[in-house]
Design a protein around this nucleic acid. Structure first.
Lengths: 335, 335
DNA sequence: CACTAGCGAGAAAACGCTTCCTGGACCCTG
DNA sequence: CAGGGTCCAGGAAGCGTTTTCTCGCTAGTG
């Protein structure tokens, strides 16, 4: 039943005929250790298949070699792409990743704090917690980087995409196709990205757009369900918060016998990997997800080292015209 | 610079006027503690905003309240859906999730072992390591469950989908549409799921299919790239290892001016969330991803408790006919 | 009423590391 | 040649918990 006792640093030390302190030094790559002693130690580690106990290391040194990733929705492929990029950086530095999802808004700070005693810092993806929560975190002086959220007056490194400009560009495209009456299928009201995107859509009045906001969320289901209300405003185009919502909307439109983009145009945001395979392929914004993830890691690493890094500029996202948008229908034939 | 010292169990004990042992007992919900004492302790914890140190708990108790999830590819949305379901179980039990991706085959055992000192057990998703690796893990008597891999002769709980039957059903569908010459766009040869699926495809000779295997992988790019070689066998249908590969193949076909399914049918597997929005919507197998994730957690939890759980049967996956398959083209018009 | 269970709480010993401190050996300098 | 540095390795003190052990009470029994 009881497996062979775990081999500890003690065992290695004994086998190599040195002290545990020396073994520890060898592991940390300290240079103040005689080279053939180090060799013996390494040999013993091999021989005994020694694996340092992470919890003990963490307790003793205060460093856990892992980063906590906190996000709103594990099943959203958008986050995957970011995490993926972050992960390559992390694993390069032998860092592990503790992933935590919060479901209820309000849980977010709690789960973040919760995980703090097991990680060296936090990556907050699309954080929606209120500014006091962010300040709380910032005050703890724990390396924390905000991804896809910028909040002036919070002393935390942030990396984000220029949602505003990108969305404006998208609106420009719509305007040039003759669209006027458009509905914005909103994301979560507490999401910074949502606020930015909506701000841009409103700004686009200047381009001739006449936008209305309809509450939804960044999921397929929410996009699907919000579509009926959106149609009540008789729009020629739907500007969805993200690709998922756009896909949901298109599905509902199809159910209703409306063609995209002949009857109504739909746009997405993010360019999740499957967006270009959709029917129709989504006109959307290509978020630099990999760059975002890499930069997030770089910032994290820097603040781990205590370097005072300057805030990088917002990342640019490219507009891509695919087949889900077309010229605005002119006749007001529908309810 | 130095923030206020972390509050420890010691501080709580002092504030409540009890011993640390008592505080610990209160936390663990031990019944052998006087109720107003417990109340004082709880009050003190609140007051001081005490958060137990995870590393210390892990070291002292040997329990880490986290589960290690090991998978081949973080960016594959298929895994997300599984993880998502697993996560709800885990978080219900206050378990955290340490996610690890291995890139090079051969890394897999290493990263698994690596993470073992920080978690109470492992969830191996689509494990591709060799059987000796699995045996090694099994011998350690650490709770470990294999997801999407079944390996007789390895003493580990496993949860998986009945790939064989599902694929056979899919082949039946193809056969009934008059397909004969088909190409199987393979997944990784070391993946159990790939072996099962291919086994089924071969079995489908009995239904009149004449399958050829072409090496690919379960990614969009691999599906895309393998398509040209697949076409050299002049098939009327492509059976892709999974949805991603199918999408890649369809994209390449379109580039070549071939329509799906008019010129050639394509099938997927898994039914990732976006598969039904694809152009054309994918005929595929609906893997019960949520059920898989939940069951995986349930098995994990059971083996955590040391319960000797019996192996559950394979989960059934449903075939779904969408628009990417149609009657086999009869003329052999193409190269 | 004396004696023994039984129970609840504190003291203290782990848990497996890191790191500070100490001391011996060696080398250099005056 | 004596004294003072330097360098390297070991001893030991934590790190913040859990858990075993112990001990003083209370209550129950004959």
């Amino acid at each position: 039943m009881k497996e062979r006792r775990r081999v500890t640093i003690r065992d290695v030390a004994d086998a190599a005929g040195v002290s545990v302190a020396t073994v520890s030094r060898v592991m940390s790559g300290s240079h103040t250790v005689n080279s053939d002693m180090a060799e013996r130690v390494r040999w013993a580690m091999q021989e005994l298949e020694y694996r340092p106990n992470g919890a003990a290391q963490g307790l003793a040194s205060g460093m856990h070699r892992s980063v906590g990733v906190v996000l709103p929705d594990l099943s959203n492929p958008y986050f995957n792409d970011i995490i993926k990029a972050t992960y390559v950086g992390a694993s390069r530095e032998q860092y592990r990743m503790l992933v935590t999802e919060w479901r209820e808004p309000g849980e977010e700070l709690g789960v973040s704090l919760d995980v703090l005693s097991r990680v060296d810092g936090l990556l907050l993806l699309s954080a929606r917690m209120d500014i006091d929560g962010l300040r709380d975190l910032a005050a703890r002086k724990v390396p924390t980087v905000l991804v896809n959220r910028v909040e002036l007056g919070v002393d935390l490194p942030m990396v984000a995409v220029d949602n505003f400009s990108a969305m404006l560009e998208l609106c420009q495209h719509l305007a040039s196709l003759g669209h006027r009456r458009v509905v914005y299928l909103a994301g979560s009201p507490s999401a910074w990205q949502n606020r930015e995107r909506w701000r841009a859509v409103q700004q686009a009045r200047i381009l001739g757009l006449d936008p209305v906001m309809v509450a939804a969320d960044g999921t397929i289901e929410a996009g699907f369900e919000a579509t009926d209300e959106a149609l009540s405003h008789d729009p020629t185009a739907l500007i969805a918060f993200n690709d998922l919502a756009a896909l949901g909307a298109i599905a509902r439109l199809r159910e209703l016998g409306l063609r995209t983009p002949a009857d109504i145009s739909v746009t997405g945001f993010d360019d999740v990997s499957l967006a270009r395979f959709a029917d129709p392929p989504l006109t959307t914004i290509v978020s630099p997800k990999a760059a975002l993830g890499e930069l997030a890691w770089a910032m994290f690493e820097a603040s781990l080292r205590g370097e005072r890094i300057e805030q990088p500029p917002l990342l640019r996202a490219a507009f891509v015209h695919r087949a889900s948008t077309g010229p605005a229908r002119t006749s007001r034939s529908r309810v």
